[in-house]
Simulated assay, not measured.
Amino acid sequence: MESINLSYTITDLVRYFLYLGTTGFGGPPALVSAMHRDLVTERKWVSEEDYREGLALAQLAPGPLAAQLAIYLGYVHYGVIGATLAGLAFVLPSFVMVVVLGWTYRQFNGLPWMQAVFYGIGAAVIGIIAVGTYKLTAKTIGKDLLGWCVFGVSAVATVITESELIWLVLLSGGIYWFVKAPSSRANAGMGISIAPFFAQVQALSTDSILWQLALFFAKAGAFVFGSGLAIVPFLYGGVVKEYGWLNEQQFLDAVAVAMITPGPVVITVAFIGYLVAGFPGACVAALATFLPCYLFTILPAPYFKRWGKHPGVKAFVDGVTIAAIGAIAGAVVVLARRQLVDVPSLLIALITVGLLYQFKKTPELAVIGGAAIAGLLLRAIN
């Protein structure tokens, strides 16, 4: 029987997510792995079962994966208040950093040092998420042959398509349900219906730039599935092509800012909002993006808690979870292909893997700092 430490307070929870939001680099793969390591394995605040349910729900619902998982884990023992505070604590640090960077970017007409810093940090991040994904995969799948098959198919599909396929995630859950819980198939009847909260908002006037931002980013948060990285193509189509709010270089800089700051990658929306309409634009863009994912997490959460112990639901959740981890592993490969473009970047990634694997207590923030310095030095030498 798994032992859970229920002595933690809501203040402890908020303090943890503030810490993760301030120091958690690497996007969804690294953040999801960090929550498992910190809250399930080390602190034992959350059970493996609750974590899997949260990851499955985050994968099935639209919106940024890591933020939804943080919200769900806050919900587990402290309900809506815990979910709300955990979500705010997780997002707030990176929001503040991105706004400061947006102000600096405007003042100095770009950030020429950003590419050098991102070069080093990006390579280290690949190493961090590779180690985290390896640990999460080994812990979740173990010796389950069907699990490894589902994991492999999901990983390969992600590498080939460079996106997370929601139909494949659902199919994986269905396969697991069919194989692992055959006796529960006749009684299956659970379903979660969530109304589209933003459909009526479309009728509102869009003359104001803030309303345009609110509507666009609400759609981004409500209808884009997968990790924070999945939102980037959607944002590019609207921000650059449709509305022309930013040019190509500004958009690439916005994505880079999200990658070199801790917390959820989707926080790039705040940087975009700042460049378009200043601090009000940053607030509107962030709120409009995260509000749908918050609602899509807390509304179905009671159903997951109520039905999560049912054999059929548990099997479905296990299948979805394993497919999600496979997609995360595939995303590591996709990111590595883009980031590890030469020998120095490959060496930084390999050194990171070696440090974290050999010396398990090595602070990730120290590795990130060292990689940033390495990037700046390499730029100076070249």
Results as ranks from 00 to 15, higher is better:
Leu73Glu: 09
Leu146Glu: 05
Val159Ser: 10
Phe316Ala: 12
Leu252Asn: 06
Ala301Phe: 06
Val169Trp: 04
Ala301Thr: 07
Cys283Gln: 04
Ala123Glu: 05
Val150His: 01
Gly24Ile: 10
Leu229Gly: 06
Val98Asn: 05
Val257Lys: 04
Gly189Trp: 09
Val98Phe: 07
Gly54Gln: 08
Leu92Thr: 15
Tyr236His: 04
Met35His: 12
Thr158Phe: 13
Tyr303Leu: 15
Phe151Leu: 15
Gly24Phe: 07
Arg15Thr: 14
Ile373Ser: 03
Lys44Thr: 14
Met1Asp: 14
Thr289Ser: 11
Tyr78Cys: 09
Leu377Glu: 01
Met190Lys: 10
Ala254Trp: 00
His36Phe: 14
Ile4Trp: 08
Val341Gln: 14
Asp50Gly: 08
Lys143Ile: 08
Val96Met: 07
Pro264Ser: 15
Phe151Asp: 03
Leu69Thr: 15
Thr352Met: 07
Ile192Asp: 08
Leu378Ile: 03
Arg379His: 03
Ile381Asn: 05
Gln200Phe: 00
Ala380Met: 08
Val313Ser: 11
Glu162Trp: 14
Thr352Asp: 13
Gly221Glu: 13
Arg185Phe: 07
Tyr294Ile: 05
Tyr303Thr: 11
Tyr176Met: 10
Val266Gly: 11
Gly312Glu: 10
Leu168Phe: 06
Arg306Glu: 15
Leu57Thr: 02
Met35Val: 15
Gly21Ser: 13
Leu171Thr: 12
Ala258Leu: 11
Trp177Ser: 14
Tyr75Cys: 05
Thr206Ala: 06
Val117Pro: 00
Gly369Asn: 09
Leu170Asp: 01
Ile267Asp: 10
Ala203Pro: 10
Leu377Pro: 01
Ser208Lys: 00
Thr104Trp: 03
Lys139Trp: 14
Leu171Asn: 01
Val201Ile: 06
Glu248Met: 01
Gly226Thr: 06
Arg379Glu: 01
Ala323Tyr: 00
Phe234His: 07
Ile160Lys: 15
Ser33Ile: 06
Val266Asp: 14
Thr268Trp: 10
Glu364Ser: 13
Leu210Pro: 00
Ala323Glu: 00
